[in-house]
């Protein structure tokens, strides 16, 4: 048990194991994404109310779900790095932010594109959309803070504190935005209930959600690998690796 944690703290070990995980996980993820997208785009019948535009759900919902989960991954990694001073948790936290921001961006853009044919407008100040926008701001704040520090060790500590503060705030923000929206809800826009989703539409959606989680993991591991190399560039094993790569 403890040796596992010791290994987890060792950059060369993590670099190696993540490489072998990626060798299998990345092709599998890409295959799953293609299958899920083709399934959702070609082999499901259109929603009886929204027609074909609902097919955006297969990328919109997974990206939103994973973007939110990513923040908690980042905050957890931040907490681990603050409490146990684990270097790898530090690297994981730093690597989460751009992926989470990108997925939040995807969720917002696909939501806007979906909104146009469905509600007739690109943007609605709806509770969920507004919360996602704030989530994007939180991610961008973490990235901006990290980039502002010259001392990267202090940068990741500061980002860890900020992401933990954000974690406490996300439920509050979500609840208050939700409440704010119920106060101001314009009557013109009616949201369709989600409970009516048909199983034939649900299975590709579940597949896509799983694949987006896998995609997050892949991107996280890849970001971590490059970050490990960049931080360990003065060590023997990285130099050996570079020498092997260069020849």
């Amino acid at each position: 048990m403890w040796t596992f944690f010791h290994k987890l703290g060792s950059p060369p070990w993590l670099y190696g194991i993540s490489g072998s995980i990626l060798r299998y996980l990345l092709p599998l993820t890409l295959l799953g994404l293609v299958v899920g997208a083709v399934w959702g785009l070609l082999y499901t019948s259109p929603d009886f109310r929204q027609g074909n535009s609902y097919r955006i759900i297969y990328i919109h919902v997974p990206s939103a779900v994973v973007a939110l989960a990513g923040y908690y991954v980042m905050a957890t990694a931040g907490a681990v790095s603050l409490i146990w001073k684990m270097k790898m948790a530090d690297i994981a936290m730093k690597s989460c932010a751009p992926i989470g921001a990108a997925l939040t961006f995807v969720a917002l853009v696909t939501g806007a594109i979906w909104g146009k044919p469905t509600w007739g407008t690109w943007w609605v100040w709806d509770a969920r959309i507004t919360s996602m926008l704030i989530l994007l701001f939180l991610y961008l704040g973490v990235i901006a803070l990290y980039e502002a520090y010259d001392n990267k060790e202090a940068a990741s500590k500061a980002c860890a504190v900020l992401s933990l503060v954000g974690t406490v705030n996300i439920p509050i923000i979500y609840k208050s935005v939700d409440w704010w929206y119920s106060l101001h809800q314009p009557a013109s826009i009616k949201f369709t209930g989600e409970s009516t989703i048909h199983p034939s539409m649900l299975y590709p959606l579940l597949l896509m959600i799983i694949c987006f989680y896998a995609l997050f993991t892949c991107a996280l591991l890849m970001n971590m690998r490059s970050e490990i190399l960049s931080r360990e560039r003065r060590t023997k094993w990285v130099r050996k690796l570079a020498a092997g790569e260069g020849n």
């Binding site: 097919r55 955006i56 990328i59 990108a102 997925l103 995807v106 853009v109 979906w114 044919p117 892949c218």
Partner: peptide, 21 residues
């Protein structure tokens, strides 16, 4: 009539995923 929206959404997602990887 929804093709433009659906394909645009998928294209943007594809671009972001490729960039991420």
């Amino acid at each position: 009539g929804h093709g433009g929206f659906v394909w645009a959404a998928y294209a943007i997602t594809l671009v972001v995923i490729v960039a991420l990887l």
